[in-house]
Design a protein around this nucleic acid. Structure first.
Lengths: 343, 343
DNA sequence: TAGGATTGCACAATCGTTTGTGCATAAGAC
DNA sequence: GTCTTATGCACAAACGATTGTGCAATCCTA
């Protein structure tokens, strides 16, 4: 029943050889150390028969290689991050790495603590989706010399490889859809303030307005988190304070849900009463009462790119630091934008 | 830059004591081993100053306790499983465990391989959402004496603690909604055949029909996976072959998406042309063109229960084996069922 | 058949911790 | 002042693997 794991020593004893010989036979170093074919065979047989599984622990300790990479995200249950985690996990496994997945629960304090944990588990590399508030603890982590690739909410001032979507042009393209249909008063349901994606989207928003000679109205921006509650509050707020507003722009799929809730509550209809577009393309977007026009991030590609960059670094390829990889965003026009005739 | 991690020995040397003393001072065993307050203080100070982090590896090797639990799911990017993973991770961390999350990609072969991996990483316990096809490899794993809690697609024949929703009564309750509104020809978009949730839902489906004296028509059941593609195909198939069908029952949120796609393609409207209900309550359910009546599984509770059961076993509380915990399902009536007057 | 090269393996150190035990020195008892 | 007890710490053996080196036995060569 509670069979203690078989150790190399037991295999060696059973095969009548020393531990070192057994080790070399089983790790494919028979040739190099001139273990006879016969001995090797016999050792392999015994190992098989006893169900020997080398202890990753001992091996890691000795080799100073854990074969672990960390993936740290603000919320695993958010499909955006879980999709990233999935891709990274897949790529990492292909190269023989296992993944330690942790969740900072959108808390910088928690993030900091977890970084410590990952470090003491001796992860060899990290794919990090930071909470995005502050970067000092990341700076410290980076200094340890563990390869890190940041995804999504990155910090340009950090000397790290980062992968993120092309937020600004995505936003501008989406804004163009609205502006071309005559919308002039567009509410912005933003996410966590100060994060790079949010910053760049705000820049895109303002640029778009500028290009159309529309004055920027700061009070049209609301919200402070990428989650549903923030979206709900922001949308509710804008809907009550800005009667002239004809469209809203949600900065994430969670925010979108909140906005939908707020709109629903007021018995407004999309796009007749209010137009709505969103960054992130949720799988249900096209089945909504009004299929939502959206800017789709290529999330799997974000994950895959990050994983590949990390794995290259792990293989020793000195990848250029401080480089930021931009993944293009695709606009999916649907039916959530009304043609707006005033002005 | 590439600062090698500080070891206990360096701390000890710097503090002018032996490694053993340093170890005891830092692990709170000063009292027990009569280390003077002064020495302890000084060791702690040095450790702090050097930024000492004990190697989890070495510690695990020595203590035969890795502090790792595994979480194995068929697809992390599916919100159902990621929500479970999140809960388990949260609970585990609270008790000082880290989580190794792996994804079997809905493949039994992959699942088997991963179980081996987890084992060689010496996980202390496992929350397992099996693919659900076969159980032999799980049997073997169980025999190692590592506590395992199964979630969702469990096997009743295994001698393991398991947690799953109350599929049958959930189904019956949802069927009642349809039957009461006069539906008699109800298509069933099932998931992976042979899995416990699928089996039990089919049983619920048949029981409901029986209770209303409606003959069971096997050809009204279609589909073979819990994913969107299967849902799409199944729905398309049923819609073309059963013109008299007035309602469909999707067995998962992914299947629902597929069904919606099929219905959309045919320009049918819900519930006028076809009624639709679903197991699992996706967050967008109420914002769909026709808000979907659904049976909501309490996914966080599934995860939490599993985690707690596992953690109890890890603490040595002999929890009753072969016990199955049922989490009740909540019916959320919305607007996707038409009142059906024929028959 | 002696000498050197080659073959085939064992010994022992090592990775960074934890922990049982032993050995000084200091303190207390008489 | 001796004997005992308590105090404060160091030594060394684990945990389970990997790997540099050493040492027999066999082989080849002349």
């Amino acid at each position: 029943m509670n069979a203690d794991p078989v150790t190399l020593r037991e295999v060696a004893e059973e095969a009548g050889v020393s531990v070192s010989t057994a080790s070399r036979a089983l790790t494919g170093k028979a040739e190099q150390y001139r273990i006879s074919k016969k001995t090797e065979r016999s050792i392999r047989d015994v190992a098989e028969r006893l169900g020997f599984r080398p202890s990753h622990l001992a091996r890691s300790l000795r080799n100073q290689r854990t074969g672990l990479v960390g993936v740290l995200v603000p919320d695993v249950s958010n499909s955006f991050f879980s999709a990233i985690a999935r891709e990274v996990t897949r790529c990492a496994r292909e190269q023989g790495y296992d993944v330690l997945l942790v969740d900072s629960q959108e808390s910088t304090a928690c993030e900091e603590q977890l970084l410590g944990h990952l470090q003491s588990r001796q992860i060899e590399g990290l794919v990090l989706c930071p909470v995005g508030e502050s970067a000092e603890h990341l700076q410290a982590f980076e200094a340890k010399g563990i390869p890190v690739v940041m995804v999504d909410r990155c910090f340009s001032q950090l000397n790290l490889t980062t992968v993120t979507s092309d937020h600004q042009s995505g936003t501008e393209a989406l804004m163009a859809e609205l502006l071309q249909k005559g919308h002039r008063v567009i509410g912005c349901l933003q996410g966590r303030v100060g994060t790079l994606p949010n910053n760049e989207r705000i820049v895109g928003y303002r640029q778009s307005l500028k290009a159309w000679n529309i004055p920027f109205d700061r009070s049209l921006i609301a919200g402070d988190q990428f989650d549903e509650l923030s979206g709900y509050r922001a949308a509710s707020h804008l809907l009550s304070t800005h009667v002239g507003m004809t469209a809203m722009f949600a900065f994430s799929n969670q925010i979108l849900l909140g906005a939908l809730r707020a709109i629903n509550e007021r018995k407004l209809s999309i796009p007749k009463d209010i137009s709505l577009v969103t960054f992130d393309d949720p799988p249900f977007a096209e089945f909504l009462a009004a299929p939502i026009t959206s800017a789709k991030q290529d999330v799997p590609l974000l994950g895959k790119t990050a994983a590949e960059l990390l794995l290259r670094q792990l293989k020793g390829h000195e990848s250029p630091k401080n480089q930021i990889y931009r993944i293009p965003v695709e606009i999916l026009p649907r039916k959530s934008i009304a043609t707006c005739s005033f002005h």
